[in-house]
Design a protein around this nucleic acid. Sequence first.
RNA 1: GCGCUCGUAGCUCAGCUGGAUAGAGUGUUUGGCUACGAACCAAAAGGUCGCAGGUUCGAAUCCUGCCGAGCGCGCCA
Length: 650
Amino acid sequence: MLITETIRQALQLGLQHAFPQLFTPAESAPDVALEEPSHPSFGDLSSPVCLKLARTLRANPLQLAQKLAETLSREPIPGVAEVNVTPPGYVNFRFDYEGLAQLVINQVGREGDLYGSRDAINYTLFIFFKVVIEHTNINPNKAAHIGHLRNACLGDTLARILTAVGYEVEVQNYIDDTGTAVADIVVGYELLGWQEDERSFDYFCWDLYTAINEEYAKKPELKKRQLEVLHSIEEGIDEIALQAKKIAERIVVCHLKTMARLGIFYNLLTWESHILQLGFWKHALSSLQGSTSLVLEQDGPNVGCWVVRLKDHPEFAGMENPDKVLVRSNGTATYVAKDIAYQMWKFGILGKDFSYAPYGSQENGATLWTSVLQGGETGAFGGANKVINVIDIRQKYLQDVLRVSLGQLGYQEQAANSVHFAYELVVLSAEAAKELGVVSDEEEEKDMYAMAGRKGIGVKADDLVELVWQKATQEVARRSPGLSTLEQEKLGLQIAVAAIRYYMQRYNMNTLIRFDFAEALNMQGNSGPYLQYAHARAHNILERAASRGLYPAKEIVFPEEKLNDSEKVLLRRIAALPEVLLKAAGELAPSTIAEYAYQLAASFMAFYEASPVTTAPPAVATFRLSLVAAYKQALANSLQLLGIPALNRM
RNA sequence: GCGCUCGUAGCUCAGCUGGAUAGAGUGUUUGGCUACGAACCAAAAGGUCGCAGGUUCGAAUCCUGCCGAGCGCGCCA
């Protein structure tokens, strides 16, 4: 039982007794908000509910609060020592910290790795809800850059969060192996005559991609060849198509390696070429043709096309020509059309399926599967209740069209469960751009620069990993010269993963990340390595204590003295995890977990300074050891959600 | 032109459905390792929350307008 939930319920009950008029009709019960007081002298938790009620009840909020507090004081609330009132009308609760410590430490000890998620699972398990999360989705024609990294990190953490609260989660990585991006590599090989060198293949293609695009700019007639190649690839039968497929497959291997190093794994790869060859769209069209929203235009700008009617939909009000073409007048399908068919497959309403075969094993122990044209297993994937597409904000319009179209075409429920998990871009700060040499002299200086694959402007994901890894390894070597080089490097990589993943996940979704090398390499303060250090320190205390025969107690026994502030704050932070996780899952907000983990770690650091453990008198030491053990578990669980390795030393 | 997002400390960002004295990190200055690891902690300085109105007991938060920034808006892919 969470302390906040207990207080919330008590407040509800108290309101009901003090102001019965609020509860007629019964469902009009007011929402009870709880917040941390701005100053600890007020209490441990406060509710401004009376301030809000002041308007509806047309009464002085302070008097309302006093009446409510009086009612609340009649019955003891578990975990609460005192209720009081402060102007302008807050009701404040002071915890019974011994009771709270008992509850929280026991709960963490009981639930272990499940602490934080178990309460949530109790709420959600009965639903049996399957969520498909699609992320990464990098064009298979060049190395991944830091923009792709944000996508993959967010998608992966989202999957971890939703799994933790009890959903069945399936992670898919969609490979667009038939687009112009891959075609450009084929054309590049043909026209530029490059030979592969010792560079990794995705790096080689990174340069080839920019080279061929420079060539297009010089000789626009080459675009004709690009189109021919593209058609061949879409047909999927000749030598060219085979070559393109091979390029895409090799690049995908590179991408998977890049992501695996960061602890990011998938359940299924789906290939655009399979979607084309299995005729997903044709299948979708046949089942949609009865819909009144899908029409063959007889006149107007879209004459001769099949369009989905969106002009009457409020989301597209005010647009000049909101109707969306699905089939061109030449009979071919547009991108949105294919997207609709694919989304229908994800929901299991297409009536057509891929076959599936194992693609390989992954370091997390799970098998990675891939779609195949034939001969594999069937029915194992898709069929989701909810689909989350992790795609940057630039795709918002198309994702809106996709979702609304699904609804217009008769799939309201699926439309309501289609989520575009949109996040802002990663751009280069002026300094980063300068370091990469992308600022030309003539250009007037800007304070940020967009990455551009065609121009080769961007920071490659693996370059960043190597850079941070190198720095972290140097630090480890400096601090732990006794370790073998191999061990130093292993720790260095885990620290680099922490730094990078934290950097990619700590920002809100709609915050544009201005990538800066100094900031991404930062390992102090609000950073991933700080979290790891806060874990290692706790481990060290427990280990040190054990070597002296001291262990966390099975039954919490309190020392004579009252708990000090650093213990209280730490305890409250530990207690907050279940609630924070539920919030992060409900709002699909990974940064909530990052913020929480930092707060938790910081409160431990303060505790560490103020409250010695192993050197304290035995009764105090035993209690603090229990607290440290509970904290370490809570932090480890948070780090697990963030995909950050919890280290015992660094 | 229309739509979405953003503007908070020198810099990078938090600030929850309106609530108490607007918070972190970083940078600057200062103090703390014979200690459970200093990848740490403590302290100081640093703010007209873009500007102007409005709504109300109360606005960084909601509404309107303006200024500035970014991104979208094809039978393209």
